[in-house]
Design a protein around this nucleic acid. Structure first.
Lengths: 169, 169
DNA sequence: CTGAACTTTCAATAATTTTTGAAAGTTTAT
DNA sequence: ATAAACTTTCAAAAATTATTGAAAGTTCAG
């Protein structure tokens, strides 16, 4: 396989992976492009490489910066902005987990907490009890996931790998 | 909060969680409905509860069955099919992980393996080396994720919790 | 200050994904 | 074999999500 073909293939595959991960296809493709580019890239470079519009490139690069997956950098003597991607796949994973924790798990936990306050009356006592029990069990699980994510996203790769290997043995 | 309102809220929230998880909104809502329903439900019941069409209900129930999140059951003396949801949230998580491993991680690993065969020539030797190195590091990570998922999806909740607690300490 | 170089915004448009519902298919009781 | 009860399919329609590109905004050198 030729390098160009391989790069293209990687970008496509990363794009489709991303789209199952709350990351839109183009954003994931831009991220893939950064993952395999040694050099700094400008918005223009991204537009050309992926054949997308200026607005689209700008918006998705911005979001990638918000996620901590791409950094803005200045190139001496250039007016234009340049970007570089986070290459460390472990850090990438941590950032994505953190972001999804905030966007998904935290709202879910809020709702689950509210749902525990459901009132029962004599008519539906049993039904309410069954409901509350199930909500409680989902909430416990969500809390476990939440604290694990918090721990993991603050940890070093080494710590993680070492402990994880033990865990998996 | 009233029970009905609480159920409605749970279904909505689970729906929006699902839509970030490669599970479409309606499928996730149907799943939520099953999570909080003690009784068996027919396709008709689901249609009514969520105000969706027959085709939609049928298709999504079928997919939930494929995912192992809903079971078909027969009610004595009834012609109609009835369904019951998997209530154990740990099992639900295992099934979802397993499914996503198959649908996302495995194809990714295949592509990564292919990409390692990229040919270099004198002109782009260094570029190919950098690319191969990065692909290799992504692949190692993906393999770690893959084997962890395989281990986790086959394990008992108790084993998992116990080991995980140790891990998180 | 001015204008060139660059970035951001956003309404219109396009692409994708989901839903509907009627028709076709299947199963079962008689 | 028939027909009623039920399930599945799928093309068309609706809803949602992503993309474009031109216009507005910003920054900075001269």
């Amino acid at each position: 396989m030729q390098l160009l073909e391989a790069k293209e293939k990687f970008i496509q595959q990363w794009g489709s992976l991303g789209s199952n991960w709350g990351i839109n296809r183009t954003m994931a493709q831009i991220h893939a492009l950064f993952l395999i580019s040694e050099e700094l890239l400008s918005a223009e470079d991204v537009m050309e490489a992926l054949k997308i519009s200026r607005g689209n490139a700008n918006m998705n690069i911005r979001t990638l910066i918000d996620w901590g997956l791409v950094y803005k950098e200045y190139q001496a003597g250039e007016r234009k902005e340049f970007f570089r991607g986070e290459k460390d796949i472990w850090k990438v994973t941590q950032r994505v987990m953190k972001m999804r924790q905030r966007q998904e798990l935290d709202p879910m936990l809020n709702v689950l907490t509210q749902l525990q306050t459901v009132k029962s009356d004599k008519k539906n006592k049993e039904e309410v009890e069954a409901f509350t029990k199930q909500i409680k069990s989902i909430k416990s699980f969500a809390e476990l996931a939440d604290s694990s994510l918090t721990k993991i996203s603050g940890s070093e790769e080494n710590w993680f790998l070492k402990t994880f290997m033990k865990f998996m043995r």
